[in-house]
Computed example of a mutant assay.
Amino acid sequence: MVLRPPVEPMLAQARETLPPLAGVPGGMAVQPKFDGFRALLYTPLRAGDPVLLQTRRGALVQDRFPDLAAAARTLPAGLVLDGELAVLDPHGQLSFTALQRRATAGRNARVLAAEMPAHFIAFDVLQSDGQELLDEPFARRREVLEDLFTSYRLAPPWTLCPSTTDPAIADEWLYEWTDVPGVEGVVVKSLTGRYRPGVRGWTKVRRRNTTEALIGGVTGTLRRPQVLLLGRYDTTGRLRLVGKTVPLKPGPARDLAGHLTAAGPDHPWTGVRFTASWNSRTPLEPALVAPVLVAEFSADVSQDDGVWRHPLRYERLRLDATEADVPPVGDRQ
């Protein structure tokens, strides 16, 4: 059977720590988790048919990435790759902000492609020479993918995602590579596992750090806070929203309520419009509080301009800390 879009990509289940890699029947492989847009790339079997680029949700976006579509013309026919779309900033680091601009490009798609070229980080192959590989074990699919990069001497915009079975290297990728913007953790895969579309059959581990910010607002009420809006000051002295927590558990919410003070009219967020999540347009109307309390929270490493994209986890109130102890906007800790 020849694969045609949309094909649901295989997914990963999140966990806090790396699972055991040694002694597992069949063996396990670990790959870095890059912070991009998941995509499947299809090269045509027949001359004249278009290259297709499919998002995780099934949308076709090759018109927004004309540079990748053109480069894919040099790849073999009947190929389906699974990977991450990425864009590098002028400093050579992965930029999610630039990637978002590319992903929402309209008529200026070719202009943006020239200014900020896209890259495709391939970590799996679902079809080769028109032959579906879904039932092949991951180890075999990896061999086919590595042979593709070697035989065709692929270079940027194509990147082969690293892969290892060495626990020491996996630890290095999780705890050292994630200091680099654009790398947020690792994905663990069974070497004997088949590709199961739509199934969370892999494991992802994001690195999490613990740090501090000021509580600038809450959803719910001051007596029953639900979600914390956390802020840090930038270099101009402006308090900026850097993230929101997951809903508080009842115990911490009760403890915190006794310390919250309603904001005065000079609160720096007075009149500011908030949305429910990082990429949402749904309005959020929080209760502002005096930004004097320091909250300790844990977060993964996915940031854009000092703002965490994923929800934060409230750990505790730091009554021993003051505003001076809170890192500035842009500090990755």
Rank of each mutant, 00 (worst) to 15 (best):
F297T: 05
F297E: 13
W308M: 06
W278A: 12
A290Q: 13
T219K: 10
R223M: 02
K189I: 02
V218Q: 09
E212N: 12
L229D: 08
P197G: 09
W278M: 04
Y233S: 04
L228G: 07
D300Y: 11
G185W: 15
V242R: 07
T192N: 06
A287I: 02
D234P: 03
L256Y: 03
R232S: 09
I215W: 04
V186K: 02
V218H: 11
H259W: 15
Y233A: 04
N279K: 14
A276D: 13
P247R: 11
F274W: 13
T211W: 08
G251I: 15
L228T: 15
V187D: 07
S298H: 03
P247D: 13
P252E: 06
I215V: 10
P311K: 12
P181I: 09
T219A: 01
G217F: 06
A263L: 04
A257Y: 11
G201Y: 01
T275N: 08
V242G: 13
G306K: 10
N279L: 11
G243P: 01
N209K: 12
A276C: 00
T235K: 10
L191T: 03
V187W: 02
R224F: 10
V187F: 01
P252V: 15
L228H: 05
T192H: 08
A262W: 00
P252C: 06
P247K: 07
A299M: 14
W269I: 15
T245W: 05
R194M: 13
Q226V: 15
H259P: 05
F297M: 14
G243D: 03
P181K: 07
N209T: 14
V294E: 04
V199P: 00
V180P: 00
P252D: 12
A299S: 11
R240C: 12
N279M: 02
R208D: 07
P311Q: 05
S277H: 10
G201L: 12
V227R: 10
V307T: 13
G237W: 14
